[in-house]
Structure formats: structure tokens, C-alpha cells
């Protein structure tokens, strides 16, 4: 399915504070080693090598592409890096002193780490200062890339955009300096959760059914702590192949219940509706209860208060 106009429209550019210059990285030589030995910078950044050791060193980058010459103690040498690539560097006086600079066309992070398909995925990072435009791309499943929108970075090159998450997709941004490294966010197909409650004399059984059955996901029963005004996870179990799981709580437990789905160590990706354990009836999420007149009635949306 190719709907570039819709996808472009869905891409939201967020403003971030600007500082119109490239970043500086300092690599120190506090002894006979580089600190940090491995770094990633953006094309156009400058790196300052600082000899904080008691003896003389030098820095030869990329087999001689750049060379500091002899650096006496307490001296610095700065070099800009404009072309993306891997730049190993070494002190030729102490060959065991080595490190690597990775110069990228742009950095790229995707948040949140786990997200449901179709939910907003935030892509952010930094491109070379002065970059006029970046194209956000995702893999098309056939070895190619498809543009899903454009973003205009701030003057210092920082950028952020959101796009609907696509299951199994890889993302990158491309600008004048070339493509960024790729990121593969954890995107899970949309899941519908159905929760039912069966009250027995001694126990109440809560059964959850995830449709379609998601692979490798766990279900967590959460009960509402009425005197603490928050959800508490009670028990986590793996879904069976049919996407089902059952929980049992004492019949005397009178509160609200819901079930969340997540990858084994990930954040909650989806919550079921809320049931009252006293009678099994659906109820609004207690966390959304608002006093009347504060926006949306008694069960309004998420207000935000300052102080």
C-alpha cells in the first residue's frame, strides 16, 4: 500500500531549541590510552584531542588522512570531520593506544522502544548544522526505501518527527551528507484485548483473550489500589498459542481490574478495558476520574496541572 500523501501529512515536525554550530567532542589522553576510545559524531563536528599525560603523544587518523604531529604534554590538537565513515586513530609513539571515530551523516533514535503498529513513533537526532531538509525513510520490505515525510532541522541540526509505526520496518533519515545509520524499533501488530470475569464463591477468575494472538507477549493483571490511586501489577503470565491467559484472585478482593500486554521486558503496549471485580461490569479507568467541571465531566481525559 502506497499512500505517500497521507504519510507525509502524518509526519509532524517538532521544534527544538537551536544553537547554530557543530558539536565539539574532546578525546583526552589522560595516560597511555584515549578516553573515550570510541565515539560517534556527525559530519562537520570537530574533535579536540588533548594530551593530559606526562609524556609526548601524537594522533594519526585514518592511516595518515590527518596527523597531529608531536603533541607535548598539556597540548591540544583539533580537527574537523566532514565526510561520513570510520576513522581509526592511533598514537604512533605508543601503537597500543588506539581508538575509532564513527562519523555519520545524521544520528537517529526511535522512541518509545516498543510501540504498537499505527501508534506514533518519534524519530529524533542531529544532522550537520545548517542542513536544510531531511527525508525520513522506511524499508519497503523488498530491499528498498520509501520516503514517509520530510523534516526541517533546527539551525544546529537537531530534529524530531513522528510517524505511524509500521511492524517490521527499518527507519533512516537522508540528507545532503547521505543516509543516517538505520534503526529497527520494536513494533507490534495491533492487538485487541478482551477481558471477562467469572465470580466464584472463593475465587474470581479473569480471562483475557488477545486477538490476533501475538507471539512472545506476556499479560499482566493489574488491580487498582484504591487508597493509593494507582494501578498495581499483580501477576504476569505468558499468553498461550491462542492468545489466552487466566488469572485468579480472591473473591473478596473488591476493586478494579485490567490486563496489559507487553513484550517480556518491554513497556505496556496495550491495556484491556476495566472491569469491577465486585460484579464484573465495565467501568471507566479510575485514573481518569475527574471532578465535574474540570474538563470532560467526571470521567474526563488527562488533564495536566501545575502548582
Amino acid at each position: 500500500m502506497r499512500r505517500p500523501a497521507a504519510l507525509l501529512a502524518a509526519l509532524l515536525v517538532l521544534a527544538l531549541p537551536a544553537a547554530a554550530q557543530a558539536d565539539e567532542l574532546t578525546v583526552a589522553m589522560p595516560g597511555k590510552f584515549f578516553e573515550p576510545a570510541r565515539s560517534t559524531i556527525v559530519a562537520g563536528d570537530r574533535v579536540t584531542f588533548r594530551n593530559a599525560d606526562l609524556v609526548t603523544h601524537d594522533v594519526r587518523v585514518g592511516g595518515g588522512v590527518f596527523d597531529s604531529g608531536l603533541m607535548l604534554r598539556n597540548t591540544i590538537w583539533a580537527q574537523g570531520f566532514d565526510a561520513p565513515g570510520e576513522y581509526p586513530f592511533v598514537c604512533t609513539l605508543h601503537r597500543f593506544m588506539s581508538g575509532t571515530l564513527t562519523v555519520v551523516a545524521a544520528t537517529l533514535d526511535a522512541t518509545p522502544a516498543g510501540v504498537l503498529a499505527g501508534r506514533p513513533l518519534k524519530l529524533s537526532g542531529r544532522a550537520p548544522a545548517g542542513t536544510e531538509q531531511l527525508t525520513v525513510e522506511r524499508s519497503d520490505g523488498a530491499g528498498g526505501w520509501v520516503g514517509v515525510g520530510t523534516v526541517v532541522p533546527e539551525a544546529d541540526g537537531t530534529y524530531a518527527a513522528t510517524t505511524p509505526a509500521v511492524e517490521g520496518a527499518t527507519y533512516r533519515v537522508t540528507g545532503a551528507a547521505g543516509p543516517s545509520p538505520m534503526v529497527v524499533p520494536q513494533v507490534t501488530a495491533k492487538v485487541d484485548l478482551h477481558l471477562t470475569l467469572d465470580r466464584g464463591r472463593r475465587h474470581t477468575t479473569l480471562a483475557v483473550h488477545a486477538m490476533p494472538a501475538p507471539a512472545g507477549m506476556v499479560a499482566t493483571l493489574e488491580l487498582y489500589a484504591r487508597w493509593r490511586y494507582r494501578w498495581h501489577p499483580v501477576q504476569t503470565i505468558a499468553l498461550d498459542r491462542a492468545g489466552r491467559a487466566r488469572f485468579r484472585i480472591p473473591a473478596t478482593r473488591r476493586t478494579y481490574a485490567r490486563v496489559s500486554l507487553r513484550q517480556a521486558r518491554g513497556p505496556a503496549l496495550v491495556h484491556s478495558h476495566v472491569l469491577r471485580t465486585s460484579d464484573g461490569r465495565s467501568a471507566p479507568d479510575p485514573d481518569t476520574i475527574r471532578p465535574p467541571g474540570t474538563g470532560g465531566g467526571e470521567h474526563g481525559g488527562g488533564g495536566h496541572g501545575g502548582h
Binding site: P291, G295, G300, G305
Partner: peptide, 17 residues
């Protein structure tokens, strides 16, 4: 405010606040 809420007034707070 570990529950991130003023439940009486319906206000929410970010942990950073």
C-alpha cells in the same frame, strides 16, 4: 508525587516536576 496525580483535583504531574 509517585502516583503522578492529584486525584482530588484531577491534575497530573510529570516525574520531572
Amino acid at each position: 508525587v509517585p502516583n503522578a496525580r492529584d486525584a482530588l483535583h484531577g491534575a497530573s504531574y510529570a516525574a520531572a516536576e
